[in-house]
Amino acid sequence: MKLETHAWPGSYGAEAKPRVGFFTDTSICIGCKACEVACKEWNHVPESSEGFTGHSYDNTVALDADTWRHVAFIEQRKEVGVDGAASLAQSASLDQLIDETGLGTYQEGDGLRWLMASDVCKHCTHAACLEVCPTGALFRTEFGTVVVQEDVCNGCGYCVPACPFGVLDRREEDGRVWKCTLCYDRLKDDREPACAQACPTHSIQFGELSELRERAQVRVETLRDAGAEKAQLYLHDSDDGIGGAGAFFLLLDDPEVYGLPPDPVDTTHDIGTSWKAVGAATAGLGLTLAAAVFGGRR
């Protein structure tokens, strides 16, 4: 049996809206961080300087209470060849051109590629954060997104380690947890989230999830055909450990390269096991007590 909080679309009835989300196509992300800035501006997220990190051009480190969008930068040394140009839709045709003109390699020695990817809360179908929240501060909206109600959250911090992606964090200053709201306020006004609107290359695509999923499928096939062997959709599959995400990604390398878990599971999916273990332990404790009190001589 799977224990889960049911809200969307069930509890919204006629009020339920189509589920929306993001398809982030990292193959066309130019790492401009406009999404990060737009998010902070729109949502009044406080500054959170981490100083110079040396992590390529990433100085915001990771998603946290004060970083709801985070752009990862990965510099990779790559063998040149079809895969070496994997981030490039044109690799196939280029190789052909080189062969025809007999020019040999077009990048001497090792090639280089620079992956950039904008990360965000995944708005999981099975959202551990929401499930474990004791106050109900985390809830599922009529759009199928996962949002923290800042006036309800008491800062218990349970959701923080519950999220399999390390998205949520508690803000020292006000003791509450914060994360992407998928711009709930804007959605209610029929407006696109700030980050998606700011993205110049449409790397962040916002829309109805069903439509985005189809688009993503086509895109990944195009890239694979062009020789990007490792191009893969991440959290796109509703059969995966979180039931598919509201924000899913097209990656050009394995998820862990971007700091994402390769096979995340909703941490509460096996809550049943836990309760059984608690039951057994409780009974065991009771029996032990009884044995101790009644079992001996004096």
Partner: peptide
């Protein structure tokens, strides 16, 4: 640059000649 990205998606070759490998280079062929 969004139009360069779009052109590239439509088949254009993008080449970048620059002392450094930059975010433009990352998107170039």
């Amino acid at each position: 640059f969004q139009w360069v990205v779009e052109a590239k998606e439509r088949g254009a070759s993008v080449m970048h000649v620059d002392p450094r490998f930059t975010r433009t280079s990352a998107m170039a062929d």
